[in-house]
Amino acid sequence: MVGRSAIYDVIGVPAPRATAEPDSSAINDLSPDSHGPARMQLAGQAPSHSGETGSDGQTVSDRAAWRKAAHDTDQLKRPVIRAGLQMAFNTLNTLFDVDGDDGDFECAGVIDDTLNSSWAEYANKVADRCTRLAGSMQNAGTMQHNNDEESRGEFDRLSHRYRDTPGR
């Protein structure tokens, strides 16, 4: 699902699937009250108090903290997606009539052609990054990984995705 637009998270989506890969579609229920995929509960790893440790070394309170972080991170993408959608809409239905009445209004072309498309794309990428990071947090808190090191690896892999490249 690499490259799937985060916009789908607001306008309706293909059904998400659970996977260890920090993928845009990996998030099913990021509510902090969610206890993760069913297989986690079947493993009988839900101790009755927060100090108890599971086979992956995590306590119930650790898992709750990861789930809350995932939920909170995922929520932050919504306003960006809303504004990005409006911008994408403006890009599709250009604000100005640059081939007609507004033809010699230079800023019209800059706003419609240069700015709106680039910022709609940036907003979409930021929203997508929220989704991926929230997915990794969710995985860290739902026994997708056997230990701390595996979870760290998943977070670090995100750095490679967003590393610096010669740009602007």
Binding site: T73, C130, L133, S136, D148, S151, D156, L158
Partner: peptide, 16 residues
Amino acid sequence: LEGRAANAALRQVGQL
């Protein structure tokens, strides 16, 4: 939270 995963997550949160 603490540990390597938490630190790695914090780096990602900072970049986001």
